[in-house]
């Protein structure tokens, strides 16, 4: 009888332990999984996001800061959102950061004009030119690619802001119309209009350079 009672106590303890474990473990696993998923997502998008921001603001340090802010805001506010929503959300945050950057620049330029020292983006900026070629191309081939990229960057940078956003999100990031609309915070019809105008302009500008 006493042994039976002891066995019953032991089984009850094991049961409680199992219940407590099963009660906490899924939550912990979910948090770790979410962190891992977000890490993978950010790792997959960070380089392209940097070049995206760099083409827009034409300054690598500023672009790095913008990407960092976007990553932190996504992690802080939207980590619990479904994973498939992260891409348009991330680019929306990044776009907002780039727009804010342009506003700050505009204000700064107005102040500088007041003091007689307006600053313009440097046209000779070329961050890619400093990097070694990982694909083993000859210097002539590298030069050709860099010149083509530089021409493209300048042409894209000269587009109106909304056209530039639509073109970069659709072409560089491969977002569909719906995803681009979320990232830009506008309707799908607006995305199509901006994208179409951007392509028309770029065809005219780049047609003389590209075959």
């Amino acid at each position: 009888m006493a042994k039976a009672r002891e066995d019953w106590r032991m089984s009850a303890c094991v049961g409680v332990f199992a219940v407590s474990c099963s009660g906490e473990q899924p939550k912990e696993v979910t948090t770790l999984q979410r962190e891992r998923q977000l890490n993978q997502f950010l790792a997959s998008v960070e380089r392209r996001a940097l070049r995206f921001a760099e083409i827009a603001v034409r300054d690598r340090d500023e672009a790095l800061d913008l990407v960092q802010d976007a990553m932190i805001k996504l992690a802080r506010k939207y980590a619990s959102q479904p994973e498939e929503e992260w891409t348009p959300l991330f680019y929306r945050i990044l776009q907002n950061g780039i727009r804010d950057w342009y506003r700050r620049q505009a204000v700064r330029n107005r102040v500088m004009v007041w003091f007689g020292r307006a600053s313009e983006p440097e046209d000779d900026y070329d961050p890619v030119a400093q990097a070694p070629d990982p694909m083993g191309r000859t210097p002539d081939e590298q030069l050709e690619v860099r010149q083509a990229m530089r021409t493209l960057e300048l042409a894209v940078a000269d587009l109106p802001a909304r056209q530039r956003e639509a073109f970069m999100l659709r072409t560089f990031e491969g977002l569909d119309v719906a995803g681009t609309a979320v990232a830009m915070g506008c309707s799908e019809g607006s995305v199509k209009t901006h994208y179409s105008r951007a392509v028309h302009t770029l065809r005219d500008v780049l047609g003389d350079y590209w075959q």
Partner: peptide, 8 residues
């Protein structure tokens, strides 16, 4: 920067 974001 990514690690900082994950800490957030």
């Amino acid at each position: 920067d990514r690690q900082k974001a994950l800490q957030e």
